[in-house]
Amino acid sequence: MTSELNSLEGKLETLQETLTERSQWRPPPQPTAIPCSTDFLDLSDLSTAVGLISDVVKYSNPNTQLTPQKAFAGKSWTWDPLWREFFSASPATTTEPPSSTYLSRWYFDPRREVWQHANMADSGLLPDEAQQRLGSWEDWRWDPGCGEWELDVSHELEKEVREEGAKLCVFASRWQEREGVWVYVSGRGN
């Protein structure tokens, strides 16, 4: 566990150096201590947090314009017939288990003000139809709030539901399989 924590600390130091070189490192004037109980500390949560911070640093480079084409074109996409979604698998690293990026549908419930995964497993959706629904590169937008690519497909909702503030979007969501259960490991839903 100590070696994994040292590895994460090294990654954070590298990120700090990168941000300092870009003049983007702006820590608060006085560090604020955050009370934390190590009774509930999960190393995979720390790894995920460092991974998300790495993505923010990677995509906040003012010299590099982020585009969905750059983000998606280099990946190998596979159709998941059970979940009715395209996914791209990422291999395990020394600090993180394997994960997959799924092009998942999410529904925003305006009454509860929460995003929830809109399961497509029983939809009967086929790969060709799903591919058409995903639009072209220009249709996707970066959501800085959760650090994921987003495609607004709210037009698929009934007009009355949309008028109430509901949204339906496809996000490039990161998932990991932990002990036989798929767990969402990105920022959506918070």
Results as ranks from 00 to 15, higher is better:
W175C: 02
T20I: 06
T18G: 08
S3R: 09
E160R: 03
N61T: 13
E150N: 04
V57C: 08
R133T: 09
L12S: 06
G74L: 11
P97D: 05
T78I: 00
I53E: 00
L125P: 13
N63Y: 13
K75T: 08
S136I: 13
V57A: 10
G145Q: 06
K159W: 04
I34W: 07
Q132V: 04
S136P: 08
E17I: 13
W79M: 00
E17F: 15
E148N: 12
S44K: 09
F40C: 10
T95G: 02
T2N: 14
M120W: 01
N119E: 09
P62K: 11
E163T: 04
V57T: 10
A49N: 00
Y107Q: 01
A33R: 12
E148S: 12
S154I: 08
L43D: 05
N190S: 12
S123H: 14
C146H: 12
P35K: 10
L43P: 00
D42Y: 00
V50A: 07
W25G: 06
E158V: 14
N6T: 08
D55E: 15
T2F: 00
G187W: 05
A92D: 09
T38Q: 15
G147K: 05
L41E: 01
Q176Y: 05
K11D: 10
G135M: 07
E4L: 14
L8Y: 11
F40H: 11
G189Y: 02
T93C: 11
D143T: 11
L52V: 07
S104R: 01
P144Q: 12
S104F: 00
L103H: 05
N119P: 04
L46G: 08
F86K: 05
V50S: 08
C169Q: 00
T2P: 05
W77A: 06
E158S: 13
P110V: 08
R141I: 11
D143Q: 14
Y184C: 14
V153W: 02
W83P: 01
R174V: 03
L82T: 09
R162M: 06
Q176T: 02
A73H: 15
Q16A: 07
T78W: 04
L151S: 02
V183M: 00
E138T: 00
S186W: 03
Q131K: 03
S23L: 10
L66I: 13
D122G: 06
H117M: 05
S54D: 11
L157Q: 10
P35W: 13
E150H: 05
Q65D: 10
G74I: 11
Y184P: 06
D39C: 11
E4Q: 03
G147R: 03
F87W: 02
Q24G: 13
T48S: 04
A172C: 01
E148I: 05
K70P: 01
Y184T: 09
W83L: 06
D122H: 07
F171W: 11
E138V: 04
V161L: 08
P27C: 13
C146W: 04
H155D: 15
P81S: 11
G145C: 01
L15H: 13
T20R: 03
P27V: 14
L52P: 01
S7A: 10
G165M: 14
E148R: 04
